[in-house]
Design a protein around this nucleic acid. Structure first.
Lengths: 211, 211
DNA sequence: CCTACCGATCGGTAGG
DNA sequence: CCTACCGATCGGTAGG
């Protein structure tokens, strides 16, 4: 069921809108009735696509993860491993947040805070996505270390934690205080930290001007 | 109205419980009916204390801010200004999060992510509390700089951003991944950053062992 | 994939 | 500060 191209395309339109809503109001704030009204379809028709609210939430997370992959991860993997790729990954994340690919900023920031203290399948899916992301950043850092572009005693997991902290806080501050300068702060913090860990700081590109 | 001691005490019991619920499920997830059932009182009686859900949410934020002040801010102001006070402030925050003073971790982390993309009085109150906190950290850093304990070209607002990023990310990671080591990561990051900015790194206390 | 409906719960009110 | 209720909305179902 739901295997025909038209169904899949329709499903994707629904889920893309669902991810937008969830980025602002959370996955609980996302209601089937509201989503149906927004899209001009019947509630029960939409319900039939997913079978339950929880399945809708899980499908929304999968679609958001795909967008994240396209916007942040894939274009960074297109540049060679090393310090440049670490920088690209961070830069892509800040751009993805700043361009409001999701209107409520990073989808995963919103739903992490929403589900981090509630058990269930939704929390598990959010945690799995987070784990994948943390591991990807750590592996990218570790690659740079092994290539000799970061000092030898660099703790990849620790550095990944710090870089992610700067990205997420830039996202949070920019949203809550409507302050685009938060991205300058995040970018400066990342640049400084990578500068300190780099064997050849000249390999870091200049900080780009921010709109 | 509601000025008698007994009323105020009762109000405080209600709001303390409200803050606990909101730290896990958010200020929208906090419903008057559920709160009433939890406390064994009638819904309309409880409603009468506040007049509207929004007023309940705003009163809950005020109570949570008071607890934050008692747990994090006041004990840091008891030590003299300087690098030691900066460290105390960060250490108190990590302890407040780790001890689960609120069962869902930092109350303000949860409600910031919940309201950062929705307009209204609740968002404004959350943003005001966040601004106060950021300014306090920045002023504490600036005091340390003026006392000559941080290098002269320290950008207080930038350093405050970075310290806050480490604290909030320790909170978020520990909750989502049920991983107490996140606090070690946060503490190590803060320590390293302050070490680099200190004029006399020996003034930083050793990292305490973590349970 | 629609209309029409279910019981439960929401914020809020009336009346005492 | 209680009981009893209001209309709206929730997730979900029946029946076509």
């Amino acid at each position: 069921m739901a295997g025909r191209p038209r169904d899949e395309r329709a499903r994707n339109v629904v889920l893309r809108r669902a991810a937008d809503i969830a980025s602002m109001d959370g996955l609980e704030g996302l209601s089937i009735g509201r989503l149906a009204t927004d899209l001009g379809v019947s509630k029960s028709g939409l319900f039939g696509y997913f079978g339950s609210k929880e399945e809708l939430q899980l499908a929304t997370i999968r679609v958001a993860a795909g967008i994240y992959l396209d916007e942040v991860v894939r274009p960074a993997l297109a540049v060679p491993p090393g310090l440049g790729r670490v920088w690209r990954l961070c830069e892509n994340w800040l751009s993805y947040s700043q361009r409001r690919v999701f209107p409520g900023g990073c989808f995963f920031f919103t739903v992490t805070a929403e589900f981090d203290a509630r058990p269930g399948r939704v929390r598990d899916a959010v945690a799995a996505a987070s784990r994948d992301w943390i591991r990807l950043v750590a592996r990218t850092v570790e690659d740079a270390r092994q290539l000799g572009e970061l000092v030898d005693d660099t703790d990849a997991n620790q550095l990944a934690f710090e870089l992610i902290a700067f990205m997420e806080t830039a996202n949070a501050v920019s949203l809550l205080h409507d302050d685009p300068a938060a991205y300058q702060r995040g970018r400066a913090a990342i640049r400084r930290r990578l500068h300190d860990a780099a064997t050849d700081p000249a390999m870091l590109p200049d900080v780009e001007s921010v709109t």
